[in-house]
Amino acid sequence: MSQHSHAHDHDLAHHHDIHSELPPDPALRVKALESLLTEKGLVDPAAIDAWIEVYESKIGPRNGAKVVAKAWVDPAYKQRLLSDGTKAIGELDFLGRQGQHIVAVENTPDVHNLVVCTLCSCYPLSVLGLPPAWYKSAPYRSRAVIDPRGVLKEFGLELPEHVKIRVWDSTAEVRYLVLPARPAGTEGMSEERLAALVTRDSMIGVGKVSAR
């Protein structure tokens, strides 16, 4: 437990001080911020472009889909994935920022997993890319831990009564990846074809994979 005092934490005053003096439109404020930081040499706009490029083209849910598909076709990989997710995902070179320590949690006929971060928006970026807006929203954050069935229903997923739901609240730097069940009707499909079936939503736990 922390021993510090907050008598001199002035961050609150900064927050309160400035927000009323800035325009409400975030587009204006961000533009001004970028221009200011560039002028002061506190940011390089080309680095901003590069970060955007990373999430638009290089890192996304296709990474996680490949992990899932490999686990479906390769039982030894699946075992490695479930016993040490970080290492197994590292085999495919999909570790990275906000995905350096990953636990894979398996959906079975009796257990369904759901991932949330009630305190902010922690998400396994390196395997799923950027989280959707709903994952970061107050409705999801507040309800996932108290009413997971109600949340799943909003996604069109109703689970049988006997299924146990495990919600994982990402309070630390451990990131959770749901290993969804392989759907029936996919026997003999190639790993590539299987990966194409895996949805991002199924790897968060708000959906299931269908054979389409």
Partner: peptide, 8 residues
């Protein structure tokens, strides 16, 4: 832009 700014 805000994501890029925050990261870099």
């Amino acid at each position: 832009r805000m994501l890029g700014i925050t990261r870099s």
